[in-house]
């Protein structure tokens, strides 16, 4: 991989990290979000991924910047698993099931939203 791709990945991952830390910081301080920053971040990332896949980009550097750098650092899978793990430890099985379906359905809906918006407006 040449230097151009490395720079794209570094810039993209910086943006992703800053946005994730910003959302975490805001949701910790204010009462606007109900403090579940991981859900917000993951749904935002699936919306962006839908828009990215719908717009059918073939530029290699743009793929590295957006898909590998920005979205990879913005979304987090292990924290999502840890939330489920914590619910199992507290023996709240019903809220585990509700939260699991909620995350999957919401991320699927937002993915489809982004995908079809870009399909209708760009292509």
């Amino acid at each position: 991989m040449e230097l151009d791709g490395v720079i794209h990945i570094v810039v993209g991952s910086t943006f992703g990290l800053v946005v994730r830390m910003f959302i975490k910081y805001i949701s910790g301080r204010e009462k606007v979000f109900s403090s579940n920053n991981i859900l917000i971040v993951n749904i935002l990332a699936s919306l962006f991924l839908g828009m990215f896949l719908g717009s059918n980009i073939t530029n290699k550097n743009l793929i590295l910047f957006f898909s590998v750098g920005f979205l990879g650092c913005l979304s987090t899978f292990s924290s999502f698993i840890y939330q489920l793990f914590k619910l199992i430890q507290e023996r709240k099985y019903l809220s585990l099931l509700i939260y699991y379906t909620e995350v999957l359905i919401l991320s699927f809906l937002f993915f489809c939203l982004g995908y079809f918006i870009t399909l209708t407006y760009i292509n």
Partner: peptide, 9 residues
């Protein structure tokens, strides 16, 4: 961990 694993992946 959060940058290594990704939900978008």
């Amino acid at each position: 961990c959060s940058c290594f694993t990704s939900f978008s992946g």
